[in-house]
């Protein structure tokens, strides 16, 4: 699967990653009475006032825009949880804390459309920014170890947006290292440089972030 915005590089744009994130389920508390909605992706509802119901994020936002519901922020988007995550994130310099795969996008969407439903929005937002910064710094310091012997990079618990940011760089860097470390170049065999052996998957993988 590749994004549509850049056909050559097969990367996603941030907006495309956000689009994918809108399929995540979220709890809403409707304030109107409505029958079940029959969508291609499933049936949602029925909606009864003050009875929480699970819907995809895009539907939640659509209802929120018409002020027909209140969005319940997910469990991880609370000050206590995020403070805990930030602390753990700082304490463990070699691993990432488990957060939802789309946490960057979901929080952004909620802040844009349902700010009043989030308790303590300023603190939550700055915590999220801090967590993202710490995590990205970890990615960068991990990438410094990238070398010619790296054939794959393992990044456990990395979120969609974070992967998306470093993807073009990692791909190019690995290509460069692979090219310059090939047997033909370094050991100087007589064969042509271009005829590089296809990367075999059996080589031991280097774990960037051992758990």
């Amino acid at each position: 699967m590749a994004g549509q915005s850049n056909l050559q590089l097969s990367v996603f744009s941030a907006a495309e990653v956000e689009f994918l994130a809108e399929d995540e389920q979220i709890d809403i508390v409707p304030n109107v009475r409505m029958d079940t909605l029959h969508m291609i992706c499933g049936d949602y509802g029925p909606f009864r006032p003050q009875i929480p119901v699970k819907v995809p994020l895009w539907l939640a936002i659509a209802l929120k825009k018409r002020s027909k519901c209140r969005i319940q922020p997910p469990d991880w988007m609370t000050v206590e949880k995020l403070t805990q995550v930030l602390e753990d994130e700082r304490e463990a310099p070699r691993e990432f804390q488990p957060l939802p795969f789309h946490y960057v996008e979901i929080s952004r969407l909620l802040f844009d459309h349902a700010r009043e439903d989030i308790s303590d929005p300023y603190l939550v937002r700055s915590l999220l920014e801090d967590i993202r910064d710490v995590r990205f710094h970890k990615v960068e310091s991990g990438l410094e170890n990238l070398s010619a012997k790296t054939h794959a990079v393992k990044l456990k618990n990395l979120a969609a947006m974070e992967v998306n940011i470093v993807r073009p760089f990692i791909v190019r860097a690995l290509q460069c290292f692979y090219k310059h470390d090939s047997e033909e170049l370094v050991k100087q065999s007589a064969s042509e440089v271009e005829s590089q052996a296809v990367s075999s998957d059996r080589v031991p993988r280097r774990t960037l972030r051992p758990r």
């Binding site: 990205f136 960068e140 990438l143 410094e144 990238l146 070398s147 010619a148 940011i165 470093v166 760089f169 860097a173 460069c176 290292f177 310059h180 470390d181 033909e184 170049l185 370094v186 050991k187 100087q188």
Partner: peptide, 23 residues
């Protein structure tokens, strides 16, 4: 025979700089 390894050495040495400055 050392040209190939010189190229790799150069790339490795400069890579960290590029990494930290690119982002």
């Amino acid at each position: 025979a050392t040209l190939g390894s010189f190229l790799l050495y150069t790339l490795r040495g400069r890579y960290k700089d590029i990494l930290s400055k690119a982002h």
